[in-house]
Design a protein around this nucleic acid. Sequence first.
DNA 1: ACATTACCGAACGGAATGTACATTTATGAT
DNA 2: ATCATAAATGTACATTCCGTTCGGTAATGT
Lengths: 182, 182
Amino acid sequence: MDRRQQKTRHAVFDAFAHLLERKSYTNITVQDIIDEANIGRSTFYSHFETKDELLKALCSEIFNHVFAQEVFKEKTHDFSKTGNNNIKAEITHILYHLQESSRYIKRILSCESGEMFMRYFKERLTQVFEGELEKQKSDIPTEYMLNHMVCDFAETVRWWMNNERYSPEDISEFFFSTTPFK
Amino acid sequence: MDRRQQKTRHAVFDAFAHLLERKSYTNITVQDIIDEANIGRSTFYSHFETKDELLKALCSEIFNHVFAQEVFKEKTHDFSKTGNNNIKAEITHILYHLQESSRYIKRILSCESGEMFMRYFKERLTQVFEGELEKQKSDIPTEYMLNHMVCDFAETVRWWMNNERYSPEDISEFFFSTTPFK
DNA sequence: ACATTACCGAACGGAATGTACATTTATGAT
DNA sequence: ATCATAAATGTACATTCCGTTCGGTAATGT
């Protein structure tokens, strides 16, 4: 990829994140971002169709980091063998990654953009929990349980981002203490 | 209140709800609402400052119904005497009220407006769960638990609105089956 | 060195917002 | 039934933001 494109892309992401410190998502205009990023108007539009697309792109970037690498490798490997402790390990692992991106995430979560973040986040989490849930047995509908787990974890993370005095291990502990995982 | 005002107010609420069937919240313009409600432009603005205010007003209307009457009366009475079964009764009661407003709620939840609905909803739920939680003992922070309960229930309701084949009792059952209430 | 590709930025049309105002109409109290 | 009050009307207008276009400039990498 052309260096100029990378530069622009990063400038926009950075500008966007910085603006989120001062203004709420809805109140940030494309022009604001352009000015803050110090790029031309048409340049912005050659990278992102809309402000929403920009947010989506930023979220993707974050999630590709958060859900990266070994996590998925381990998942495609035989997971059932090693018992249920691995889901806890996996969760903690994800929490560590989230902590690394927390500066971005906190800002995004601080306003309406947070809702979009949560939506994308839940999509990813659904993939993570889907497999894990098959092993559970219950008279409660599986779809309910899946939604429950995903929302539970996502909301835990949102809460955490406003209570950063806790460590990933703490949060993992909290999460599993209210969860019906066996 | 002047009959004309009531009429206008209802016309706007109705128009808004109908529009939500066809368009998403962001894509509905004030002009759309004005046309659908068949009122003058300045009339709308004399009632609601913005589209967001309109949504807020509609949510308030709904919640005043959902959390109405006996629920709060019972709460201000001595709740602890009757044991923890009452929280279950209260929840089921709220679920019945939600079902009655489900036509509105489903539409609101179907797009971005749903996030605002959820925010207001959680505010109300926090009040409901706050007292109930004091009786619980745990090494998990109370603030975490409160947030957990509130989000859990709110998300359960959101899920329910997309799975209406279940009864209020079913949902109550699901909810308490994953909840650490003693 | 050269073709390619990204960036620039002014300019424009269009859409939606929110306000202003002069006019008409409905309301409810006397 | 009258009448002062207050709400609704709708046109008009200034404003803001959006998304696109286009001719020209500068950076890139091969």
